[in-house]
Amino acid sequence: MKETSHLRTENLTVSYGGAEALKNINVEIPEKQITAIIGPSGCGKSTLLKSFNRLLEENDGVKISGRVLVDGADIYSDSEDITCIRKKMGLLSQRPYPLPMSIYDNIAFGPRIHGMKKKAGLDRLVEKYLSLAGLWDEVKDRLNEPASRLSIGQQQRLCLARGLAVEPEIILADEPTSALDPKSSQKIEEEFKKLKSDYTIIIVTHILRQARRLADYVLFIYLGELIEHGPSRQIFESPREQVTREYIQGVIS
């Protein structure tokens, strides 16, 4: 199994008001695969994910040290334009948060702020990305309705399409199915499998079966430390560490 890394962390340490949430994380995330970050809740999975697109620094009292390299460039260096870094990465959060505007504008928002003004071009993008997220057929007749009228499963796919529309290379997903019913979750998972041929996908999940179903590569985080990482099969079938085994067997959760 030979892969190139897309995103890499070096000695990444994050602390909230003095308490260390992530300790010295060194990891490489493979390109165009699905990487799952697993671990018990409160152990720093989401923190790690949010450190990848510099959303962490929007919170109060956060200190970050170490480096996060995307395509070899340190995203925490001062010379980087933060909006360009974030544009490279689409985020899907636990609950869908559509922007307070119509379905059409939700998708068009990203392209518009990045300079796309032409109606025809936007129309094409909206259709393309809604189709890619598997939502086009359901909403094509009501693009001007407020996004808040969609079901929660549809909203999550809308958020996926909205993220894709800024043409990211990496998709960050923070427990993207935790607020959804089984049917909608399945749809999202299917989308992920389709998307991984073009995107690097990083997904935080506390559902082990979901990680097993989706992931090619797995990171196990426990109490702020990266315990181990490796190809999915290896982590699930022959973990090296005792804690990992206990977590996978359900002794700790």
Binding site: S79, E80, D81, I82, T83, C84, I113
Partner: peptide, 8 residues
Amino acid sequence: MAGKRSIR
């Protein structure tokens, strides 16, 4: 590297 939007 900072774009026009960032300056604004």
